[in-house]
Design a binder for these strands. Structure first.
Lengths: 206, 206
DNA sequence: GTCTATATTCGGATAGAC
DNA sequence: GTCTATCCGAATATAGAC
């Protein structure tokens, strides 16, 4: 039943290279050479370079969104159906930031890959992004319940801003460290999540 | 004295294609064909594809940063040397958002190109990014003067978050419109700037 | 400055032996 | 499933005529 080692090896290697350099800048030859597998293996197992990218995106985004949905669901359960603003934002950003800065290096690569995949959508991924918007609608609804006086478009704007905070922070780690001359500590994951949630929660007030 | 038409035509065409598809996904052939110039013209005028990208980045980022610095300087002049928080954030985001949503389509392409160039740094651009960090240091200093009780690393974190709000908003226009089902209006530039500044300013409080 | 033609390398994808 | 060998188009870059 075990997946062939080659297939997973290709997925992990492609993910790392895509995360580092982007989709178009990485060739199938780069991937197979780095993985130590045969050149033809990508087309055998996935059909094409594009299909590999799509399979990879699905494999990584699914558990991340599941974790977000779980945290949101738990937050709603804790407070009688209407989650608090901070808890909604926490459900949104904690999973990716924990993957990013947590002890598991593979998960860190995964979230960096995902942020890149969102930014440089290939044809195969563009089609999947509709489902991803559906996932975000849960957060729109939760925010509307938590902040009933805020108009729908205002909820969307601010959710978009909050997503920007998270995406950019994960993608532009180098830039933050250059800007702060290294004074911004990236070791304490939970305090970074708190800082990010606090920033966004204040932005949602009034 | 006038620049040769071909050179500027290449710059404008390359900018548009890079903004739409990214650097690696656009070939010199794509650029010269779309511009209606000879294939060899890119190498004649710029030396290489990478050098074209670098020249383009410099040509666009310079006036944008100059405008930001001017607004910051004016804000400091208006209030006796120490600019107010909202005015600092306004100087940071108003120029790119005005380029993005203003009446000049060429400037809109320019800011989309720039956001992509920051995200997918080529070797030539990476070297230039140090100067760009120096430009951002003015904003760190201004924020530190406006918020003397905030620690240096906290200033950097929140400035980074504010940059994320702007970068992601400009880059992920499609995603915002899909998320909000079109209810987020992108026509009123100044009200979008106010919304963005307000969100970030609240995030800086306390 | 602009063109054609070309050198040379690399790209994704596949056929067919094992 | 994995390998070698290869097809064939596309990539960057340049040489040399005009």
């Amino acid at each position: 039943m075990a997946e062939p080692a080659t297939k997973d090896l290709i997925l992990d290697t492609a993910e790392r290279l895509f995360a580092e350099r982007g989709f178009a800048a990485v060739s199938v030859r780069d991937i197979t050479a780095a993985a130590g597998v045969n050149l033809a293996a990508v087309n055998y197992h996935f059909g094409s370079k594009d299909a590999l990218m799509t399979a990879l995106f699905v494999a990584r985004v699914t558990p991340l969104n599941r974790e977000r949905a779980k945290l949101l669901h738990e937050a709603e359960g804790r407070s009688g159906g209407v989650a608090k603003l901070e808890d909604i934002l926490h459900a949104l950003v904690a999973p990716p930031v924990r993957w990013w800065l947590g002890p598991d290096a593979a998960l860190s690569v995964s979230v960096q890959f995902l942020m890149r995949a969102y930014a440089e959508t290939t044809p195969g991924i563009r089609a999947l992004l509709e489902q991803d918007v559906a996932h975000l609608q849960r957060f729109v609804l939760a925010l509307a319940r938590a902040l009933p006086r805020l108009a729908h478009d205002e909820i969307c704007w601010r959710l978009h801003f909050a997503l920007g905070v998270m995406h950019y922070t994960v993608s532009e780690r180098r830039r933050l460290q250059a800007l702060s001359a290294g004074s911004c500590d990236l070791k304490n994951t939970e305090s970074i999540i708190r800082r990010m949630v606090a920033f966004c929660a204040k932005g949602f007030q009034i």
